[in-house]
Amino acid sequence: MTEEVGSREDRYWKYIYSSKLRVKRRVLRMERLAARRLSLLLVKERSLDDWRFATSLEFLLTWKLKTGCCPDIMWCDEVEFEDIHIAGKRAIRFSGSAWIGPEGADNVFQVPLEAYI
């Protein structure tokens, strides 16, 4: 039974990766999710260190790296915030680092990350 599920998953991911349009749609979906998490931080005035925003940003970076901006397929393992604060009514500024590496490999590299959203 687990082989059948694994086979189905493999077919699904091959289906997604076989089309640049499908990968771009996945990126848009992750952008909407990250924006939704960010709006909850700003509107509800929740803690800016909310792990859900970091996770959403992590998935967004992973899918953005799969759009072909790199010669190898890369992935984001983790996002760490060093400084994060509200920069306006609908804006946030943060800096930190992301752990990025080639997909299928165990080695990841710490990359500086700074953004104004």
Results as ranks from 00 to 15, higher is better:
Met1Gly: 15
Met1Gln: 14
Met1Arg: 14
Thr2Tyr: 10
Thr2Trp: 09
Glu3Trp: 06
Val5Ala: 15
Val5Phe: 15
Gly6Val: 10
Gly6Phe: 11
Gly6His: 06
Ser7Lys: 15
Arg8Gln: 15
Glu9Leu: 14
Glu9Gly: 05
Arg11Met: 14
Trp13Ile: 10
Lys14Tyr: 08
Tyr15Asp: 14
Ile16Glu: 00
Tyr17Ser: 11
Tyr17Asp: 14
Ser18Gln: 13
Lys20Tyr: 04
Lys20Arg: 14
Leu21Met: 07
Leu21Arg: 00
Leu21His: 01
Leu21Gln: 03
Val23Leu: 07
Val23Phe: 02
Val23Ser: 08
Val23Trp: 01
Arg25Cys: 08
Leu28Arg: 10
Arg29Glu: 15
Glu31Phe: 01
Arg32Leu: 15
Leu33Glu: 12
Ala35Lys: 02
Arg36Tyr: 02
Arg37His: 08
Leu38Thr: 11
Leu38Cys: 00
Ser39Phe: 05
Leu40Gln: 12
Leu41Asn: 04
Leu41Glu: 01
Leu42Gly: 02
Leu42Ile: 11
Leu42Thr: 01
Val43Asp: 15
Val43Pro: 03
Lys44Tyr: 11
Glu45His: 13
Glu45Trp: 09
Ser47Cys: 02
Ser47Tyr: 07
Asp49Tyr: 15
Asp49Glu: 14
Trp51Arg: 10
Arg52Pro: 03
Phe53Gly: 00
Thr55Trp: 05
Thr55Tyr: 07
Ser56Gln: 03
Leu57Gln: 05
Glu58Ile: 02
Glu58Tyr: 03
Phe59Tyr: 10
Leu60Thr: 02
Leu60Ser: 05
Trp63Pro: 03
Lys64Trp: 08
Thr67Pro: 06
Cys69Tyr: 09
Cys69Arg: 06
Cys70Ile: 07
Cys70Gln: 01
Asp72Thr: 01
Asp72Lys: 07
Ile73Phe: 10
Ile73Tyr: 04
Cys76Asp: 08
Glu78Arg: 15
Glu80Asp: 05
Glu80Lys: 14
Phe81Leu: 13
Glu82Ala: 09
Glu82Cys: 02
Glu82Asn: 04
Asp83Val: 05
His85Lys: 10
His85Gln: 01
Ile86Cys: 05
Ile86Ser: 04
Ile86Asn: 00
Ala87Asp: 13
Lys89Gln: 11
Lys89Leu: 13
Arg90Gly: 04
Arg90Glu: 15
Ala91Phe: 01
Ile92Met: 13
Arg93Met: 05
Ser95Trp: 00
Gly96Asn: 00
Ser97Glu: 04
Trp99Ala: 13
Ile100Glu: 09
Ile100Lys: 09
Pro102Ile: 05
Glu103Cys: 08
Gly104Leu: 07
Ala105Cys: 08
Asn107Ile: 11
Val108Gln: 06
Val108Ser: 13
Phe109Lys: 07
Phe109Pro: 04
Gln110Asp: 02
Val111Glu: 04
Pro112Ala: 02
Pro112Trp: 09
Leu113Tyr: 12
Glu114Arg: 12
Glu114Lys: 13
Ala115Leu: 09
Ile117Glu: 06
